[in-house]
């Protein structure tokens, strides 16, 4: 079907008749509630603030917490970047970005340096974020203690009393059983010596980017109805033992097959024909920027 052919159902019935909905989808009362809860979250770094959480046109568990934060924050002058697994063009990132565009009409970008709000699932961009920028992370399970205590009523108390012995014990058991801490992504951190926090399933590689950062990080869990935050210049320290320190992922001797970078988080890609395992940057926009810079540098030398 060509783009000029008529009678496409999507054209007959536009998915989103803008005039029927408020700017950025949610009604102003809902957005105000979310912003108030966000302010509280910023005031108490790492503390999970409950909020009502509205149902959105995308699935619960697919980024509705992050999306509600983004929708409540954006104004007409903002520029939003949306990534999933570091990728701007991943289907879920496209879907979320499209919803933001259609309901607000604001500008979007793939450049992490240009964006005022960056909504992300599972990654913090490689490029250092600056003051004034807001990183919104989508969170599936906001409770770092959930796998040691399944009841919310009890985990609330454990946080209040700073009783974190159970989670330390699981780390210790992991060392005894496996010889190292086996937590992969979503590695628990202590925020400013007070709350243990789930940083969302970002790789351990990204944890240091939250520590004493210049930017504000907001975390939203739509299904679990929680908002929490890491304000700028906050200590974010991964849980670790003196003799078994926190480790980021190893990519020793490996580099991106596209931009050649050896200092980024790499995805493993298996070549369909040769079966060879290759690596490439997970942050696709950063990868493209690196290539572009190198090419313009080469061009300037040649010129």
């Amino acid at each position: 079907m060509t783009s000029s052919s008529m009678n496409r159902p999507s054209e007959q019935h536009p998915a989103f008749p803008k005039s029927a909905y408020n700017f950025a989808f949610l009604d102003e009362g809902s957005k105000r509630e979310i912003r108030r809860k966000t302010l509280k979250a910023v005031a108490i770094p790492g503390y999970q603030v409950p909020f009502a959480s509205r149902e959105l046109p995308i699935g619960r568990g697919w980024g509705t917490g992050g999306l509600q934060l983004t929708l409540s924050l954006i104004g007409r002058a903002d520029s939003v970047k949306v990534i999933d697994q570091g990728n701007d063009d991943s289907v879920n990132a496209v879907s979320i970005r499209k919803l933001i565009e259609e309901t607000s009409g604001i500008a979007t970008t793939e450049d992490a340096a240009e964006a005022t709000v960056i909504q992300s699932r599972h990654r913090v961009p490689e490029e250092k974020l600056n003051g004034g920028q807001i990183l919104v992370l989508q969170v599936p399970q906001p409770e770092p203690l959930r796998h040691v205590e399944r009841k919310e009523q009890i985990t609330r108390r454990l946080h209040a009393e700073m009783d974190y012995s159970a989670i330390w014990l699981t780390l210790y058991e992991s060392v005894v059983k496996w010889g190292s801490i086996t937590v992969g992504a979503d590695y628990p951190v202590l925020v400013h010596d007070r709350y243990i926090m789930a940083p969302s399933p970002i790789p351990r590689w990204d944890n240091p980017k939250l520590h004493q950062a210049e930017h504000l990080t907001l975390l939203g869990a739509g299904r679990e109805k929680k908002i929490y935050a890491v304000p700028p210049y906050t200590n974010v320290v991964p849980l670790q033992f003196e003799d078994y320190p926190f480790e980021i992922e190893h990519f020793v001797g490996k580099s991106c097959r596209r931009c050649g970078s050896a200092h980024t988080f790499l995805d493993e890609v298996t070549d369909g024909e040769t079966g060879e395992i290759l690596h490439q940057c997970s942050d696709t926009a950063f990868c493209a920027k690196t290539i572009e810079r190198r090419e313009s540098h080469v061009a300037s030398i040649q010129a």
Binding site: G59, R60, G61, W62, T64, D84, Q85, G86, S90, N92, R121, H122, R123, P140, G184, A185, D186, P201, I202, P203, R204, W205, R223, E249, H250, F265, L266, D267, E268, S282
Partner: peptide, 19 residues
């Protein structure tokens, strides 16, 4: 919502577990 979100790509977290 949550059960079907498993259809989303998870390879960052999987990469982290591989490590």
């Amino acid at each position: 919502g949550f059960v079907s979100h498993l259809k989303l790509p998870h390879y960052i977290t999987f990469q982290s577990s591989l490590d």
